[in-house]
Design a protein around this nucleic acid. Sequence first.
DNA 1: TATGAATGAGACTTCATTCAT
DNA 2: AATGAATGAAGTCTCATTCAT
Lengths: 210, 210, 210, 210
Amino acid sequence: MTGPQTTRRKRANGVESRQRILDATVEIAGERGYDGTSIAAVSAKCGLPASSIYWHFKDKDDLIAAVIERSFETWLKAVELPGDDAGTPLERVVLMAGNVARSLLAAPDFLRLGLMLALERRPTEPRGRAVFLQVRDISHRRIAGIITDLFPSLTEDEVQTLTTYAVAGADGLFVHREVQGESVDLVALFELHARLIHDAAARTAARAGR
Amino acid sequence: MTGPQTTRRKRANGVESRQRILDATVEIAGERGYDGTSIAAVSAKCGLPASSIYWHFKDKDDLIAAVIERSFETWLKAVELPGDDAGTPLERVVLMAGNVARSLLAAPDFLRLGLMLALERRPTEPRGRAVFLQVRDISHRRIAGIITDLFPSLTEDEVQTLTTYAVAGADGLFVHREVQGESVDLVALFELHARLIHDAAARTAARAGR
Amino acid sequence: MTGPQTTRRKRANGVESRQRILDATVEIAGERGYDGTSIAAVSAKCGLPASSIYWHFKDKDDLIAAVIERSFETWLKAVELPGDDAGTPLERVVLMAGNVARSLLAAPDFLRLGLMLALERRPTEPRGRAVFLQVRDISHRRIAGIITDLFPSLTEDEVQTLTTYAVAGADGLFVHREVQGESVDLVALFELHARLIHDAAARTAARAGR
Amino acid sequence: MTGPQTTRRKRANGVESRQRILDATVEIAGERGYDGTSIAAVSAKCGLPASSIYWHFKDKDDLIAAVIERSFETWLKAVELPGDDAGTPLERVVLMAGNVARSLLAAPDFLRLGLMLALERRPTEPRGRAVFLQVRDISHRRIAGIITDLFPSLTEDEVQTLTTYAVAGADGLFVHREVQGESVDLVALFELHARLIHDAAARTAARAGR
DNA sequence: TATGAATGAGACTTCATTCAT
DNA sequence: AATGAATGAAGTCTCATTCAT
């Protein structure tokens, strides 16, 4: 720390440069989308010349995909795993939803950029889009698992529908907050969402249980 | 000269040219977003040279905004107004949701392009974004009106929350179908959405009524 | 005057339209030069569509040339012809210089635009440039005549040199005022200019007379 | 590799490329002015693609300003500093004027382009115009200093007026030669100019001295 | 007398990418 | 591990001009 601080830093530090580039890219791409993210803008924001970006990443596509991957991991770390014990199914579901909402507020880049990529349709799909869809498939399966655990009597089809509804609703609420701004209480909306889904599941399970 | 109208073509027809340009733009912008929509691409698709596009529209921003406006009107026409009589609140709400879902399948451009613009944050906001948000505010108010009519005992706050949830959920379901493709049964999801909201509203109203 | 004022004006008034176009052009060309003067800008300033400009003028070159011609005539009217009698040669010369200075202040467009055209060298010389140089040749000859009248003993060469010096100096002072702004007392500078030239002529004449 | 320096060409030589661009620009801008100088023309003349020009200069404005700066320096080098001793004030003044005239003939770009920029009035003033005016202010002050040295009894106001007249007259003579062509003997005109100013200064000083 | 519409050429500028060092 | 310099393609938009009405 008090060592050769002037000598260190600068002059070949691959890992840090890579991070700097990713940091800059996530910021720009999260605001401007794929086409709106220019290598020159990334270069300006991270301070490294454009050619250095190409040392770390094959091309723009590769860079964006890397951003998606890293921001997914960041987000994963932000989602606290729910204590599997807790209380009633409703309580547990609401708790989980609140956690997810909070994680999205803390690390919104993944979903924000992902949704932008997902909405766009370009001749040659960016790799980042595939990464996003694939990664979000994991979330889908995980939620389906939770629902199955909580309501074992539901059919596979019913679970799938509820899961789709849960994920899509979350997307919509997230978009709403991104568009409408900080005044939106995302946690409350997510909890409402969870409650409605729980009720629907419970009612369906009850009906099915007969 | 007085022959069939099919012969009449080429040379100075402002109204038709304008439509051709808008048609081309809506198609491209709906798939590629703001940055991805190049004037050259629009020109190629509509057959008019790029400079002609600038005779009809001040700049790209103006063009995109016009597209948003026109596609909103197209969509409005596609939404059938619900028969105000019908049966129970639940039946009516589900019917309306189905209608909206069908209208979005028939005319998806408005919401698709609008959501893309809404998610982007660029230094100088495109006018189209403002148009979209403003126009969607109208939808919000209309839905709030319907909920108030059906459940007069709800407080203003409760109506607002439910409306926000309804609109955001619809956005999410729409995005889901756009991303996942034609296999998604948007009508069914919208009807489920409507049912859950109805139940929530009914339960809240009942509790409040006590 | 109180007649059908609504009917009149508008609907085909060629003369007035021509004036409107020239008025707009002189303003723009006087500030921006040849290349900087776009037909679109002229159209916007005069309110007539670009195609109307081409009804009145063959092309841009023709328009600029017409502007030069008209502004020369305007300027000519602004120069008061000096009473040929008056007092001493010095008094008469100073009076004339003051008049010219005042005329340039009242109608600066001719010289301003002309100098801009004169300085530019383009592959195909604009006709306006030729008009300017030719018209200014008239001024040159007129001044040479005055000098010859006042100092008959000067040789043709001496008159030519003094005339060139007089005209060029006037250009320089005019440019100075255009660049430096209204704080410059152009009349005083022109009078100084005249005095110096007079003295030089007088001294040369005296030396020659011996 | 270690061969003659003529072989060394092509591929990445920033300094030389910058010079090539400036050389090309000064030639074009000196003839065509700001608007008449197209990046494409500069590119064609210097052999580098247009995009390379933008690596060396932020935009066209920056390029033109750089040209003004460099051509000023070139011109400064061309003006020989007058031996401060020499003979009578008249001789010294005439000598200086001749030197300036010769320097303008050798390096006319600075004044030529500068005057064109100075005459134009565009909505957003090119930076080059400001550079020119500011740099020419230096010349003004220097000349004022010389006049004060030679005629210490002149008032500040008298010095300023004579200086303004000197500079403006020089501009006018320069323009005259640019317009009229090589047949004009600029050195002779400048010497005449100097003589007239000297006489005026001497006479004013004499009158004041009484 | 006037104009709405069209058009190809060309303006400035940014793009993603490469390459030699 | 990094970067200065270069580059062709493409971006948005304006240009002067024409033509049918």
